[in-house]
Design a protein around this nucleic acid. Structure first.
Length: 593
RNA sequence: GCCAUCGUAGCUCAGUGGUAGAGCACACCCAUGGUAAGGGUGGGGUCCCGGGUUCAAAUCCCGGCGAUGGCUCCA
């Protein structure tokens, strides 16, 4: 989930002021506490501390109580500036080691003075002082609604080699109403959590004995995953791609040649010995596709190649980074490599972008943010490949985006991978959270390393452009995002069971069975909930499984050869002639395939 | 990997040193029901794994594995 800070300067001021109030409260509780940084963040703030003991959840209400008291005192935020030397001496005197270090950093950057904010109570007494750039509210009484949410460890200066401090997170809004709305939104997000829904809807599971980060797809989840994969793959084939297929392991020589062993060896799984040769699990599909390209002499007439593969790769992710389906150790990419001539570059990028938009829109992602990552011109040596190619690639990426109407893309200078510039596509889900899904990347590394060429019109060898693209990203991650986007209520074309038949009583089961068979015959996956439980209970069960359509069958339906359809989305009920609804559902399902 | 918290039935969870529990789910019986939980009976547990302390460990201690919230990382 991307973190965007879009708060107004006023809110940032309030949130940062709230962090100061928190720091003062913590110092009251632990006078020996050492302060780190305490900035405003999206929806709130945090402050880092070195404390004599570990905080427990019960500490937060106590700290909040002290904060309330500080707010009530309506302390003024008083700003002043001191020469840097004097400041460092002062910070050293009050034993704020981290602040001393931060002040020394500022000195190195050429600052002559340091700004401070001091809290002063109604009697004019100083209660708390912090080295700080500001700005702040006029006084603590102006603070809106806030709440401390949780604690976590965080490295000093974000450096894993430095000490770990205790971070206290809080949320802060101008009014209690906004705070409540925010907390409600968090509740909603919790309900949609794909890990929770994955268990409830029997989509996937993990098993300790299998290993961390290795999802097991249960039948219903595997069906959805399959449908997504089938849809994507068929769409690619219909758009000029050719399928390829490659193994899961390869001789270590390949990874050595490709450079993966040198650059990403830490993320690759250990060796397998086969006939005294070392093999490795693949972390990427690229080198295989390159090898297939190099399989024979290529002519300029053949290009472009668009080779796609649902490639399962394995990467070592550090244990603390694993998260449900969105960060796993084995996953399948809807991978493809486009190999083309310079004169085809723009057209190929345009096509790839159009395809991306089509795929994302099919799944109901309408709010799309483009990110262009280019090389840092100041640090060219960190990037492989010649200037001319980088410039053409970067310019073409920008042109294609702008021509497609994405004028205000996010431009990340220096954000490119060492082997080429790229476009990353982020989408907003149904409750507004941003997720990075698609990626379109240039690769200047592999063509060079593997000597990829084609014979040009002039009879000479030329190096082609290679574009790596994955539109869903990884099936696992995409499924995780999609579960949360739909809140588990998949549309009929993806639902493992689009319709369930519910006979009112046992006497209606035979008719229900007959109708269900007609649906099944047309390829619609249907289930029946026989009358072993009360009607209400079976309706409830279908609701909880978020089944798109329920067909209730009683005397009326048997008599009129109709179905009482309850729609999950609208919660409305309508009666349809059975044959008519079958056609309608069939159409709804096939539209997306 | 780091910091913190957690790991008890398929799921959600209670159980603080003395014979392992509830609700839901599941099976069976009764009830034959018209749009979100009818009633009864029953089966189900290496209390994550290994070691230690103790007469006695789900419970206390140590190590490992896994999960959660963050940090760092994500080609």
């Amino acid at each position: 989930m991307a973190k965007k800070t879009s708060a107004s300067p006023e809110m940032e001021k309030m949130r940062h002021s709230c962090a100061h109030v928190l720091a003062q409260a913590v110092l009251q509780m632990f006078p020996e506490a050492k302060l780190g940084f305490g900035p405003a963040i999206e929806n709130g703030f945090y402050y880092d501390f070195e404390l004599p003991r570990t905080l427990i959840p019960e500490d937060l209400p106590l700290i909040e109580k002290k904060m309330k008291h500080i707010v009530k005192q309506n302390q003024k935020f008083k700003k002043y500036e001191k020469p840097i030397k004097e400041s460092i001496t002062f910070l050293d005197k009050i034993n704020q080691d981290y602040k001393v270090e931060a002040a020394n950093d500022l000195a190195k950057e050429g600052h002559d003075t340091i700004k401070f904010f001091e809290n002063v109570d109604q009697k004019g007494q100083g209660t708390f002082v912090d080295m700080c750039e500001g700005p702040h509210l006029e006084s603590t009484g102006k603070l809106g609604a806030y709440k401390l949410t949780h604690t976590a460890g965080a490295y000093w200066k974000g450096d894993e080699k430095r000490p770990m401090l205790q971070r206290i997170y809080g949320v802060c809004f101008a009014t209690q109403k906004e705070l409540d709305e925010h907390l409600k939104k968090l509740e909603e997000a919790k309900k949609r959590d794909h890990r929770k829904l994955g268990t409830e809807l029997e989509l996937f599971t993990f098993d300790e004995e299998v290993g961390a980060g290795l999802p097991l797809w249960l039948p219903k989840g595997a069906y959805i995953r399959h449908k997504i994969m089938e849809f994507a793959f068929n769409t690619y084939l219909a758009n000029g791609y050719d399928p390829v297929c490659t193994p899961h392991i390869a001789n270590v020589a390949l990874w050595s040649h490709s450079g993966h062993l040198d650059f990403y060896g830490d993320s690759m799984y250990g060796s397998l010995t086969i006939d005294e040769e070392e093999y490795r699990l693949k972390p990427m599909n690229c080198p295989f596709h390159v090898k297939m390209y190099n399989n024979t002499t290529r002519s300029y007439r053949e290009l472009p190649f668009r080779w796609t593969e649902m490639g399962t790769v394995y990467r070592y992710e550090r244990s603390g980074t694993l998260h449900g389906l969105t960060r796993v150790r084995g996953f399948t990419q809807d991978d493809a490599h486009i190999i083309c001539r310079p004169d085809q570059l723009k057209e190929e990028l345009r096509k790839a972008l159009d395809l991306t938009l089509f795929i994302l829109k099919t799944f109901g992602f309408e709010d799309i943010e483009m990110n262009v990552s280019v090389r840092d011109p100041e640090n060219k040596e960190k990037f492989i490949g010649d200037d001319k190619r980088w410039e053409q690639a970067e310019d073409t990426l920008k042109e294609v985006l702008e021509e497609s109407g994405f004028k205000d893309y996010v431009y990340d200078i220096g954000g490119a991978v060492f082997y080429g510039p790229k476009i990353d596509v982020k989408v907003a889900d149904s409750i507004g959270r941003m997720w990075q899904l698609s990626t379109i990347q240039f690769d200047f590394n592999l063509p060079e390393r593997f000597g990829m060429t084609y014979v040009g019109e002039d009879g000479n060898d030329h190096v082609p452009y290679m574009i790596h693209r994955a539109l869903l990203g990884s099936l696992e991650r995409f499924m995780g995002v999609l579960i949360e986007h739909y809140g588990g209520a998949f549309p009929a074309w993806l639902a493992p069971t689009p319709i369930v038949f519910i006979p009112v009583a046992q006497t209606h089961e035979k008719y229900a069975e007959e109708i269900m068979e007609k649906f099944k015959k047309e390829g619609i996956r249907a289930e029946m909930y026989p009358a072993t439980d009360t009607l209400g209970k079976r309706i409830r069960a279908a609701e909880m499984k978020k089944i798109p359509y329920m067909a209730v069958i009683g005397d009326k339906e048997v008599e009129g050869k109709s179905l009482a359809i309850r729609d999950y989305k609208t919660k409305k009920q309508n009666s349809y002639p059975a044959a008519k609804f079958l056609k309608q559902l069939e159409k709804e399902i096939s539209q997306q395939q």
